[in-house]
Amino acid sequence: MNSLYIINNPQKLSEALPFIGENDGILLIEDAVVLATSDSAQTHCKNQFALEEDLIARGVKDKSQASWELVDYPRFVELTLTFDKSITWL
């Protein structure tokens, strides 16, 4: 089963990463979206997403890296159904 890992705190991605498979997904929301603006947050995961509303709110949408696909709330809901389950790694 493939999981969507929802990360809302930038410090939590590295903690969850050992458990994330390459076919799982990572969705950055809330404060964690800043990771999508940084070159250093590259992962082995093929499905990397960041919540567009949270990037816009923080004024950093234009700084997001191409390796993170921007998704809005409707796509967020769809992603939770595309993957077999969602794991919010608090």
Binding site: M1, S3, F19, I20, G21, T88, L90
Partner: peptide, 18 residues
């Protein structure tokens, strides 16, 4: 190891942290 935890998580219906 982390790999054992990874596969257990992958095979569960729900995973909760708090």
């Amino acid at each position: 190891s982390a790999d054992v935890i990874k596969s257990r998580i992958a095979n569960s219906d729900f995973v909760l942290t708090l």
